[in-house]
Write a protein that binds this DNA or RNA. Sequence first.
DNA 1: GGGCTGACTTTAA
DNA 2: TTTAAAGCCAGCC
Length: 110
Amino acid sequence: MTPARDYFGEVYDVVRLVPRGRVTTYGAIARYLSLRAGARMVGWAMNASHGHDVPAHRVINSRGVLSGKHFFGGPTIMQQLLEDEGIRVVDDRVVDFTTVFWDPSEELGL
DNA sequence: GGGCTGACTTTAA
DNA sequence: TTTAAAGCCAGCC
């Protein structure tokens, strides 16, 4: 059987589909993968995203806060990356988060 | 092999 | 309203 449903690959794929200037949340991805509360695993996948072409800076928590900004190698790397895409970030929080929020289950179609 | 941790979310009090 | 605890799965020691 082909175990090991590449959860990481699933997450990477979804994150790569996030258009520039938009952001998504761990819960949205987790929910898209039917992981009702496996949001932690999504973040864990991001931890392994280093070395992959995954815009992990577009993945934040449900409050629009850059939770893993410190994991980018700098406390402002993630913020600058988002600002570079046109997303305004203030106090480590995404401005108009609900506006730039990109839901895979909705954009990609349930 | 067993147990702890972790870039979160959601429900309950 | 805010604060607290439980839940989930995979990776690492």
